[in-house]
Design a protein around this nucleic acid. Structure first.
Lengths: 198, 198
DNA sequence: TAGATTGTTAATCGATTAACAATC
DNA sequence: TAGATTGTTAATCGATTAACAATC
């Protein structure tokens, strides 16, 4: 993933069409050997003397990471965080398309957020089944999220991206990615209290 | 951090006042020896026969993670994501207090979000200096964030929690924690395309 | 050809796991 | 005392780094 970020920015750096393992390693602060190993593991072969062809590597990484195909997602919870995700246009780069938003809040009903109408929760099941939605993004309050997750699993969802501050329990085979912002704060708190000491 | 989440939920599980390394290991799916090592490394000693005293361990971990002291933060960018962070009340648990929000958008000026007035950017420097703010949370568009980061560093900020989709460059000594949501999606995309294959 | 960069094998390092005497 | 659980040392495992012949 870090490779992808670095390489997709390559055109902007106006470097040539190739990149060496040493350059990548330098930029990402890792060992050149490591880079060659990683690239090799997803079937990318470099050329002696010149290195790797940037574009080709990019494509291969996209494929390896699964960014090369469209993923349609349903967003559950159209509050502030949900709206922020809907509005964010950076997901397209990774093949993620949030095709619908659902929320039970009467105030939001029928309102448009980032061009998408917020649908009532009753519409969720038919929608998921009709469009074969595989990914659900949950931004509901912690109290509601487990219940919603259970329903989503019933509907046959394959993955849940959980932004609510709870750990969700789901049967094996369904992927849950918990996005706990508080976790990031741990690093900061640690750093700051460390500064304090010295 | 995972220990902390687990242990702080202990009261809800209504287990006794102590917990064994085996129990923690089981719940977190790691090796019991690892647990004992980790706890030992922050100076926590357990008792033979009964294990560790839950409350005491919790306190020690809080201290080790730096959650035991208040951190005052300034939020830059009061858009959807910024508002979501302002509204989120879970930060208090970790000692984080967002004491002010700043945004240049005229529409937001003077508006209240989660009880805090949004201040204009000009007010940032005096505010940071007056209150000795150490942490800034950036939720501005990618184009603006580096410029803002530079200014914040000048003002003597110690850490930046970056929610804008760019990598920020700062001098050594200033901590930047990048919160790239797209990164989380990589895992999901990978899982889904893996399912596809089989 | 000469030189730079790769792919890969071998060596090092650190982290995880196993084993067990010491402790409550 | 007997039994469970700890702290710690030793052994294993995997991942990172170093070295170098093969390649363009």
């Amino acid at each position: 993933m870090r490779y992808y970020r670095f390489l997709s920015e390559a055109p902007r750096r106006r470097t040539g069409p190739t990149v060496t393992s040493a350059e990548i390693a330098e930029a990402l602060d890792i060992d050149p050997t490591q880079v060659r190993k990683d690239l090799g593991s997803i079937g990318i072969v470099g050329m002696g003397r010149v290195g790797f062809e940037t574009c080709e590597v990019c494509r291969s990484i996209r494929a390896a990471l699964g960014f090369d195909r469209e993923v349609d997602a349903a967003l559950i919870g159209a509050g502030r965080l949900g709206s922020a995700l809907l509005t964010y246009d950076g997901f397209a780069r990774y093949g993620l398309d949030i095709i619908a938003a659902f929320d039970n809040d009467k105030k939001l009903k029928g309102r448009k957020v980032a061009g998408r109408v917020v649908k009532p929760m009753q519409a969720l099941r038919p929608f998921v089944e009709k469009h074969g939605v595989q990914l659900a993004i949950i931004t509901t309050p912690a109290t509601a999220s487990q219940h919603i997750a259970d329903r989503l699993v019933e509907m046959g969802i394959k993955a849940i991206w959980n932004f609510s501050p709870t750990r969700l329990l789901v049967p094996a085979g369904v992927l849950v990615r918990d996005e706990h912002i508080s976790l990031g704060f741990a690093e900061i708190a640690h750093h700051l209290s460390y500064l304090e000491e010295t």
